[in-house]
Design a protein around this nucleic acid. Sequence first.
DNA 1: TTGTAGGCGTTATCAC
DNA 2: GTGATAACGCCTACAA
Lengths: 349, 349
Amino acid sequence: MTVDRAGRASRATITTVARHVGVSVATVSRVMNGHPTVAPELIERVRAAAAELGYTASPTARSLVLGRTHTVAVVVPDLGNPFFQGILRGVARAADVEGYHVLVADTAEDVAAEPDKALRARGRCDAVVLVSPRLADDRLRDLLPDLGPAVVVNRRAPDGIVPSLHPDYRAGMAVLADHLADLGHRRLLYLAGPAGTFSDRERRAGLADVARARGLDLTVLPGGVTQDDGARAATAVLATDATAVLAFNDLVAMGLLARLREHGVVVPREVSVVGFDGIDLGAAAAPPLTTVRVPAEEIGAAAWRRLARLIDGDDAGDDPAAAQSFRPELVVRSSSAPPPTSPTDKEAS
Amino acid sequence: MTVDRAGRASRATITTVARHVGVSVATVSRVMNGHPTVAPELIERVRAAAAELGYTASPTARSLVLGRTHTVAVVVPDLGNPFFQGILRGVARAADVEGYHVLVADTAEDVAAEPDKALRARGRCDAVVLVSPRLADDRLRDLLPDLGPAVVVNRRAPDGIVPSLHPDYRAGMAVLADHLADLGHRRLLYLAGPAGTFSDRERRAGLADVARARGLDLTVLPGGVTQDDGARAATAVLATDATAVLAFNDLVAMGLLARLREHGVVVPREVSVVGFDGIDLGAAAAPPLTTVRVPAEEIGAAAWRRLARLIDGDDAGDDPAAAQSFRPELVVRSSSAPPPTSPTDKEAS
DNA sequence: TTGTAGGCGTTATCAC
DNA sequence: GTGATAACGCCTACAA
């Protein structure tokens, strides 16, 4: 690398190297790309020159001519959300081992801006993994075709227009509800998430399945997605006769747990609380949080794999409409226990 | 946008638009870039054609000719770490408002791989924010010049070779120690972080400052950075006669808190525990965690601003060696309280 | 085996 | 005001 008059580092180009060795740029290109048709002696000299000059092919120029950026975009509503972080990390690490880079776009929960941000990100990438839980279905349907190779995560693509990957929220919730029912709970309370969302709908469905099958009493209260939402819901929860509450996610559950403790209600003796997601800090909650672990990072990695196939164009054999779903795994800790058998039970009153 | 024989979407280029309107590509280019020297009538027709064809300038081609990718890289050791997440989010959001994109590289805690990953990311970006706390100083010194425009976060650059931004760990720890001392604690225990690290050294320094100034007894135990590390340290902590423990960060503190609770020791009555970072979930700890909030997102945003100036080349006036430091803010919750005044005190025994 | 030359999609410098 | 046209740095037929 040399330095020009402005003092700015100016990289050596393929031409620099070619001249330095006394060959054509084509030869240098071939050597750099491991083409097998170059004389061993030359490849050595070119290598040496490249090293000496600190030459590296310009990714931008390669992208232009190759039509590939070797970059994928990950579009999420909020980098502060543990689930999205897991996804991002999963695709980042998986993509990295194949020499791919990751462009990340945080839409700051601005749903309206998502299509544009996704499109703009797409411009510099070969494909995009779109995590956009709140975007209306028809907007998504409009967006997807313009996005080119893409997968959606955390929801299903309208008409299976592109592959989708998501946790099996329904099964996850069912596992949780079954766990609670096994413990003896008959009256469950669900602290709901964002209305109309795939992840909320599916959770409700899983809950309904179990409630019906086992004759449980299910009530639903608006909850939210954050710790604060959970804390705010505490009094409403207490006003209920449910013996167990299922929060939309771990954050909500932990917020609720904290506030309940302030109110002096002891979990799980008076009421059981379970979360959803399986964030690490759930283990440090008081009491440690029973939850269901969703494999966010694994989903991210799978999303990458799907994308890789789309990019390479060998979708041969796999159904683009395929929705890949990941079953959460029950993590029993001590925030769930048998219900109190107090005289103030609904039936007894 | 049209579709070629392969069925792949093939974007309209500037030439497509030019032909469609019957003008030269130069004119289209001028219109797209808002150049003022185009006839109003033409600019209208070009706009219309562009819209009709769904034309958008290829970012790659622009990058090549402009020499700017309008992208910055963020290199972090682990996307799972709340502090790094905050940084990433901060630069992502700040960069976004100026039309810049963010490439993220997670080095998976593989320190040895960091220089290479950073370099590769740099290839597709205009600048990089490097968060690499464990990289040896001399390796960093070697790396930085090859990286071009860059800032380092969470440590200081050797010889102030590039700008650096970091929390004022020293002041943060001092604030915490003072808080504890004010409460009456005389024997402090520090659960240390990664040895040799800027963030650990500075914390120790802040602690030492206060210990000296106020005649405190300070002992240091190896701790770690994760929740598990904190849990593992519990018995060692108990074997100590310290009345207050300062964890390297909130994760460690919460892990410790959880384990102490299992051991039946009640915080803060028997021992006080404080964290560092100010993660949101600290509020949901039991008891809620006293800590010091480091403005990670703000640091990220500031890092972006610094980078933007470097990219634009108007470093005029600001000292590149400047280390910008951010003072953490004390967050008092209930995991800290006056020390027990029991007869088993050291002095009394 | 190696070199020549065209092209990837834009921008910018010239002429006109 | 508008249009050729030369870069930008690289890859890849096609020739030699």
